[in-house]
């Protein structure tokens, strides 16, 4: 299978901060690739390097067959980049924004393309509305339409669904899957676990390091994390006590249930069984979720800036 993105050893410094460290990434053509990691972990910087907005300090690789270091102009022409913050022009109308973007990409048949995009969006009737007056969900759809206008082969979406309601989020992902089915490669960064599970493959980035990559189940399996669910009448106050038990690495509350995880199942299981017997709680082993796995990954790689301070 062809690789849309194939980079290795990418590094980026801002001043003395090493923001991205030896990033290697292989994204296959036509797949939806999820990009995860805590805030400030270098996701946005990595995306910007892939689309030619930032030049890597070192490393090499190709994006859509073009060299990421020297051919950023060619890459830009075939990539649609949706920024984290809405970055179209608030004081232009919907149609004017699309028209401007179409001009920037030097498109032929600009008018038709803009009209088609407006129809697809269902915004034809509101084409003269200022973009700044749109709601969050509509802004996001407009931004997506704008970066699809020049028919890119690769979409880079930087936290596209932040601040968008669940219905709009679901519609958005339906659209992403439709685009993927039509052959467009999509790299999307997100904090939402349900979104991560909708991706074909995932990568987990932590403070410049790529810690895990693969399908959702591969990533979960690779961490070898065991998780138990505790339920009972009064589990809410037990978090602190549970954390003291041997082998407990995470405790998370879900209403009247607690999830306890650890990588050493042999150590954890007897301790939990005794704990529950004493208090009359129900105990059941459950599958570790992506969230459990990511929290685990974050625990092992503490924030370097936090640690330093």
């Amino acid at each position: 299978m062809e690789l849309a993105i194939d980079v290795s050893g990418l590094n980026k410094h801002f001043g003395d901060k090493h923001v991205v460290r030896d990033l290697s990434l292989q994204v296959r053509e036509g797949e939806i690739y999820g990009f995860l990691g805590p805030n400030g972990s270098g996701k946005t910087t990595s995306i910007r390097m892939l689309c030619g907005l930032l030049t890597p300090d070192s490393g090499s690789g190709r994006c859509l067959g073009y060299d990421v270091l020297t051919q950023s102009a060619e890459i830009k022409r075939q990539v649609g980049y949706m920024t984290q913050k809405f970055s179209l022009w608030d004081d232009l109308t919907i149609a004017e924004n699309l028209d401007f973007v179409a001009r920037m990409f030097g498109m032929r048949g600009r008018r038709e393309a803009v009209d088609r995009a407006l129809d697809d969006l269902g915004l034809a009737g509101r084409r003269h509305q200022l973009a700044g007056t749109l709601s969050g969900g509509w802004k996001q759809r407009l931004a997506l339409a704008a970066c699809l206008l020049h028919q890119p082969r690769l979409l880079l979406l930087d936290e596209p669904t932040a601040g968008v309601d669940p219905k709009a989020r679901r519609d958005f992902w339906e659209e992403i899957h439709r685009l993927s089915a039509s052959g467009i490669t999509i790299l999307v960064s997100t904090h939402y676990m349900d979104e991560a599970e909708r991706c074909h493959r995932l990568a987990y980035l932590s403070y410049g390091n790529l810690l895990a990559a693969g399908t959702a189940s591969e990533v979960i399996a690779a961490q070898q994390l065991a998780t138990w669910e505790l339920s009972g009448p009064d589990v809410t106050g037990l978090g602190e006590a549970l954390r003291q038990l041997p082998g407990v690495e995470q405790v998370a509350s879900f209403g009247a249930r607690l999830h306890v995880s650890g990588s050493d199942a042999a150590l954890l299981q007897p301790a939990l069984e005794r704990f529950c017997r004493e208090r009359g709680l129900r105990l059941a082993q459950v599958d570790s979720t992506l969230e459990d796995v990511f929290i685990q990954l974050m625990r092992h790689r503490p924030d370097p800036f936090e640690a330093a301070s």
């Binding site: 907005l53 830009k76 920024t83 809405f86 970055s87 022009w89 608030d90 973007v101 920037m104 030097g106």
Partner: peptide, 13 residues
């Protein structure tokens, strides 16, 4: 300031 510059830079301009 408005962040629209990033969008402009992402185009071939």
């Amino acid at each position: 300031e408005r962040g629209t510059f990033e969008n402009l830079l992402a185009t071939p301009a």
